[in-house]
């Protein structure tokens, strides 16, 4: 394959105390793609995400982000890696005491040498990108949940990171807002070529945005499917994967005899 792997996960094992959450996981994410991590509740999606962004160091194995190992690196390298990634948290995680403009301006002021006026223009651009122009002076408590996510996205993109991580982007949004967010993700991916890693279990959103997915499984604690979601829906041999993609959990008794 010619494409460059921007994230490489090699033999990752994640444990909380004695409990193994992820066992020997290996996969690559290529530059410029929208990559979706999915799976049922409690299968370790969020744990995997925390490992990818360096919030948790793995029990064993490696996570390599754009050539640097985030799992075994010094503070300087870690800071360098953090500059390459942006994260949209589930609730947006905007700072409640700051206006949207101040929220987005925070990383820009800290990490660039742009003059104040230019920063204000840049903030307007970022808000325009997420369709929130005109909301610069609003506080997070004054806008809706969907808008908070978009503002959170604008903040995550403030420094144009190479990789954007999304934690359940459509959780808690109505279908129309969720679709709008999906469109926005597609649009940003096409415009700027940003690699996107999305953790979700919303099927509609997966078909809409995902170039490639991996599916985690609670029982094997590993990856049970990898590839194009539409292909997996039709052709996967794994019953659990098929059920998941076709939303058939309630129609048949698939636990655990089917496996």
């Amino acid at each position: 394959m010619n494409r460059k792997a921007i994230i490489q996960v090699k033999n990752l094992v994640a444990r909380y105390g004695e409990v193994t959450i992820l066992d020997n996981i290996t996969f690559d994410v290529y530059e410029g793609e929208i990559f979706v991590i999915l799976g049922g509740s409690g299968c370790g999606k969020s744990t995997l995400l925390k490992h990818l962004i360096g919030l948790i160091r793995p029990y064993s194995g490696r996570v390599i982000i754009d050539g640097d190992d985030i799992s075994h690196c010094d503070d300087k390298t870690f800071q360098k890696i953090l500059r390459k990634i942006g994260i949209l948290y589930q609730s947006g995680a905007l700072f409640g005491s700051m206006t949207l403009a101040e929220n987005i301006g925070l990383p820009i002021e800290e990490y660039t040498d742009l003059p104040k006026k230019a920063i204000d223009t840049l903030i307007s651009m970022k808000l325009k990108l997420v369709d929130l122009d005109g909301y610069e002076g609003h506080l997070p408590s004054e806008i809706s949940g969907g808008m908070k996510k978009r503002a959170g996205l604008a903040r995550a993109m403030a420094l144009n990171p190479k990789i954007l991580f999304f934690d359940e982007p459509s959780a808690g949004l109505d279908p129309i807002t969720a679709v709008e967010l999906d469109n926005l993700i597609n649009h940003l991916n096409m415009s700027f070529g940003t690699t996107m890693v999305i953790v979700t279990h919303e099927l509609e959103s997966i078909y809409e945005v995902a170039h490639r997915v991996i599916m985690l499984d609670k029982r094997t604690r590993g990856i049970i499917a990898e590839g194009d979601p539409k292909y997996l829906r039709e052709h996967s041999q794994n019953l659990f994967v098929k059920h998941f993609f076709n939303r058939e959990a309630e129609k048949e008794t698939f636990i655990p005899k089917g496996q």
């Binding site: 742009l114 223009t121 840049l122 144009n160």
Partner: peptide, 14 residues
């Protein structure tokens, strides 16, 4: 060119 590049052009224009 990305939004930071566009910003340079905006500043020049201003």
């Amino acid at each position: 060119l990305n939004d930071f590049g566009a910003l340079v052009l905006v500043e020049l224009k201003r």
